[in-house]
Amino acid sequence: MTATSLETEARSSGMRRFVRRVLFSEYLVLWLSVLYFLAVLPFVPQMASVEVLRNILSDMLPLLVVAIGQTFVLIVAGIDLSVTSIIAMASVVGASVMTGDGGYLAGSPLAVPAAMLAMVTVGLAIGAFNGFCITRLGMPPFIVTLTTMMFFSGAAIWFTTFHTTTSSIANLPHGFVVLGQGNIGGVPNSLWVVLAVGILAHIVLARTVLGRRLYACGQNRRAAAVSGVPVRKVIAAAFLISGACAAVASILYTGRLQTGTPILGQTILLDIIGAVVIGGTSLFGGKGKVVWTVFGVLFLVLIDTSLKMLGLSLFSVFAIKGAVILLAAVIDAVRTRFAARI
């Protein structure tokens, strides 16, 4: 290396250190969210109102639950495209159990818990099927979950036709609706649920044996197998968790809409994956955290809300969302290349 290049090296190293610190910060996306919030505030001051903030929160909640499940799958280097169909399927199955219009358990005091159990079972069953095909039959996750997505999206619509002539199953019991809209100690029930799921997921990933194994399978599957990690079971577990999370999200969405409908969640698949990736979880596995996903979802919902409030049309919401996802991915690629240089 020549003297001049050493000098420029020294001059740029301070800058480079700063860039590196920002890029590698765990909270990068949170800072970006805050920055973004402050930047749009002058244009839409009502963003800071309690009502809007509450809306942002309530928009975040169900999306966050699915995204947390997706985080597990991405950590093991998989992908789960079937989550939206699980939301739809669970919604109509749950509604068919408890609806007052000829539900299986209409009027029974057990209707609501049974319906919720059925919804979670749907999620677990579809997740288990995905996991089985991927780990035991050796099929690629993308295609397996793509076909389950197509199948159960269709199945949810079909199933609905047995229970109603309209496009959704309404007349859900009061108990269920109250669950969705009530609050405990001033905190909405749905927030309690999401907090519980989030904390549980965080603990599983950060503190338990399963968590360590999930990361290991995503980082280096062969090394994990040599070290005695039951790779197949661990990967199947990730898909089960994703299914269960989607079912919980379905409970939240169904409660909010007060109907069971098969079109629930149809359009949010790309939001889910986008949010997780924006948070910093890698599509190639081994890297991801629940808090990152929280930030990713926050960022996406923030952008969504602000764009709508700015009075921007649907087109800009779409385009800007896409640009943001792309930017996040580029930052991640740059990060990875920076990391390789250390």
Binding site: I273, F315, F318, K321, I325, A329
Partner: peptide, 30 residues
């Protein structure tokens, strides 16, 4: 993005899916 910036094709085209639909909606004024 895929070749020069080496971002995963899946995520690049997922993002441009949004952007493309957005542009189309802009052109058609929805």
């Amino acid at each position: 993005f895929v070749v020069r910036l080496r971002v995963a094709a899946f995520i690049v085209t997922l993002a441009t899916l949004f952007i493309g639909r957005g542009l189309a909606l802009w052109v058609t004024e929805t």
